[in-house]
Computed example of a mutant assay.
Amino acid sequence: MRITFFVYRLQRDRLMTTEFYRQDVEILRSLGHEVHIATRLREVPKQTDVVFLWWWNWLWLVGPVLKLRGLPIVVTGSLEPDIYEQKPWYYRLLVRAGLRFADRSVFVSQYMIDRLSAMMPLKDPLYCPHIVLDAYRPAGAENTRALPNVIFNVCWKTKNNVRRKMQPELIEAFALLRRDLPNAQLLLAGEPVDGQAALERRCAELGLGESVQFLGKISREEKISYMQRCGAYFQCSRHEGFGLALAEAMACGAPVVVNHNTAIPEVVGDCGYYVDDESPASIAKSLKRALTQPAEAQALGARAAARIDSEFRFDRRRTFLAAVLDGVHPEAHAIEPARRAA
Score class of each variant (00 low, 15 high):
Q235N: 13
V106C: 12
N259V: 01
V25R: 10
K217W: 13
V62A: 02
H33S: 07
K217Y: 13
T76S: 10
N259I: 00
Q196M: 13
E26M: 14
I218D: 00
E336Q: 12
D270P: 05
P168V: 11
S286L: 09
L300K: 03
R164T: 12
A305D: 03
R9A: 11
L177R: 04
A338P: 13
A247P: 08
L68Q: 15
R164Y: 08
E80C: 07
S117F: 09
R92G: 08
N259C: 06
H239S: 15
L126F: 07
A342V: 12
R303E: 10
D24G: 00
R100A: 10
S219T: 15
F6L: 12
E172K: 11
P330I: 06
R40N: 10
D134I: 03
I171R: 02
P280C: 02
L41M: 09
Y90H: 15
R12E: 12
Y226P: 03
Y111V: 09
Q228L: 05
L176M: 12
I3L: 06
L181Y: 05
A198N: 03
K288H: 08
P81L: 10
W55C: 13
E200R: 10
K217L: 15
L10R: 14
D326H: 13
P192A: 13
I3V: 15
K123Q: 12
N261T: 05
V324M: 05
V74W: 09
